Computed example of a mutant assay.
Amino acid sequence: MFAKRLKQLRKKRKLTMQEVADYVGVAKSTYAGYESGYRQPTIESIQTISRKLRTSADYLLGLTEFPEPPTELNHNAKEYLNYEQLHWDGVPLERDDLELIRSLLERVLRDRTLPKEE
């Protein structure tokens, strides 16, 4: 998956292998090995490549399906809970889990907006 995504994004960004290799500080043949799956880059190289390709290391590594990094942090919990790949300390949250969390949050907000008894 890494090699395939690397090549797709490089082409999408209209970059040559030489341009990415120069940015990362490796030989073109080394970078070509990354795209073919013959070589594995270091963590530092993956971070550098992701910056050049304007994506996240998570996308390159197959941990997310979203190639475009978020432009700004979204603090709206309702929208955040629609994100399909949420996890809690590495344990994936299922759709039913997210529905339960949404219901609980809606209840908390409903309780907050009720008039206070005097």
Rank of each mutant, 00 (worst) to 15 (best):
K78W: 15
K4G: 00
V91W: 13
L100T: 13
G90V: 02
M1N: 07
I46N: 00
S45P: 00
L109M: 02
Y23D: 01
A3V: 00
T30K: 03
R112T: 08
I46P: 02
N76F: 14
A77Y: 15
T55D: 02
V24H: 03
T55Y: 06
Q18T: 15
P41H: 00
V91L: 12
S29D: 02
L6D: 02
Y31T: 04
H75K: 10
P70W: 07
K11L: 09
P67I: 08
E99F: 11
N74I: 14
S36I: 06
E44G: 06
T30H: 06
R10G: 00
S29V: 15
H87E: 14
T48F: 01
G62C: 05
D111Y: 13
L81T: 08
L100N: 06
A57E: 04
V91Q: 13
L63P: 00
R107Q: 15
R54M: 03
V108E: 15
H75C: 11
L104G: 12
I43E: 03
A32Q: 14
L53P: 05
Y31L: 05
S45A: 15
T71G: 10
S50D: 04
L15M: 14
T42F: 02
V20D: 00
S103E: 12
H75T: 10
L6K: 03
Y23G: 01
R10W: 10
A77G: 01
A77I: 15
S36L: 10
V26W: 05
L109H: 15
Q8A: 11
E106T: 11
A57K: 05
G37H: 07
L104I: 15
W88Q: 11
R13W: 05
M17R: 07
A3C: 11
K11G: 04
L15T: 05
V108H: 15
A3M: 06
